[in-house]
């Protein structure tokens, strides 16, 4: 199964988001080892060099780290993950509210809508 990639954004950015999401959601647990570049590339059906680039960026962000001979691991620093969660959530909220404003919804209407949905989900 390849990962879902869209046509309008650079592939490496989409890979970064995908892996970030896995880390934030806990699917990739803190401190756990991740697959090799080649295996990840094969799963995502992307070029290994592109995957390498995405992983390097994630290292720069502190979400991954490399142990010289052992491979790559998810950070154990929960603050870094928490920060990533926050900025991810903010980004998506911004996109969402921009979209809703385009549709002509007021701030109050947007909030109402969100509340309705989260109540539905809770039930």
């Amino acid at each position: 199964m390849s990962w879902e990639l869209t046509a309008d954004r650079p592939i490496y950015l989409q890979l970064i988001d995908h892996i970030k999401m896995n880390i934030i959601s806990g699917e990739f647990a803190p401190g756990s080892k991740i697959l090799s570049v080649r295996e990840l590339a094969s799963r995502a059906c992307v070029n290994p060099n592109t995957m390498q680039r995405a992983l390097s960026e994630l290292e720069k962000l502190g979400l991954l780290y490399t142990q010289r001979t052992n491979g790559r691991f998810i950070t154990e620093n929960l603050d870094v993950i928490e920060n990533a969660r926050e900025s991810f959530a903010k980004n998506h909220t911004k996109k969402f509210s921009d979209r809703m404003s385009q549709l002509g919804l007021s701030k109050a209407q947007i909030i109402n809508l969100v509340e309705e949905f989260s109540e539905e989900d809770l039930q």
Binding site: L5, D8, R9, P10, Y12, C45, V46, N47, T50
Partner: peptide, 30 residues
Amino acid sequence: SVLDEFIFLKNGEVIMQSSVDDVREQQGKS
């Protein structure tokens, strides 16, 4: 998604050589 780079050929001439992500970054399209 598998490519690093590409070359466009048209009527026996190279009309473009670039990387896939550069095109996406600069032009916002695939």
